[in-house]
Amino acid sequence: MTPTQPNVPQDRVPAGSEAGLEAADQQEVTRLCVESAVMLMQHGAESTLVESVARRLGEALGVERIEVAIMANAITLTSLHEGRCITTVRRIQDHGINMHVVTEVQRAMLCVEEGSLDRAGYRKHLSEIHPYRYPRWLVVLGIGLSCACFARLAGADLASCGVVFVASSVAMAVRQQVSAMHFNPFIAFFASAFVATSIAGWGAILRIGATPRPAMAASVLLLVPGFPLINAVSDMVKGYINTGLSRGMMAILLSLATCGGILLAMTAWKVWGWL
């Protein structure tokens, strides 16, 4: 392109890159921005964060402006530089909530802002982010204990808490296995709720513990979509009504699938623990 750039003051050009951005450079910056945004969105970041990271990254990499349109399952991103626009769209597939990825992407963006990472370095860093996952047995154990604590908070006795521990742990293992086999999340939640309520229900039938009702309620609390619910409201509070609505609807549908599993188990074993 032309060597003169009247619109870009020299101090806007980041260190480590040659002055000004060619069209090919702008294209690469656009791709890096949209890929960062997609990574954040896929791993459960709220819309404000997605937009602000994409915008700050683009500006730090020397583009004049970045505009982002976030939809529930796609991101459109445009970069504007010296009268040139590059627009690109990416599809979003849900990869499950992973705060490790969100943290890593944001830290890399902060490094670019501070100037300790240039474009090539950022691209390398981004490609090296592998979603960290806790071992499955640890998650199973943690969720079992969590639901047992919920039961205790709701006033269950220790024997009932033990039933809840078993029921939720097994249900969590089922959920992980069904998800790992790439079933639809609704099926995973349905199956998991069925297993949890069946075990808690058999606890009630066999009279283990004197408080079967809080036990049955607590055993399915691992299936409350807490993160999507909170994200839904905070998106809407911050003006992203459409992503908020779709996240909220997803959360309600997942809860309905859970209710289906609970009802099926209660009907099959003829134990009634709710309402």
């Binding site: 969590s146 859970t258 209710c259």
Partner: peptide, 29 residues
Amino acid sequence: RAHPKVFTVAAMIPMIPGVPLFTTLLAIV
């Protein structure tokens, strides 16, 4: 150096109204 939601949402989980949520849906069903 991370967004606060990375850990504050997990901290809210004990206060999430899971039982009322499921009670509502079960009552509707």
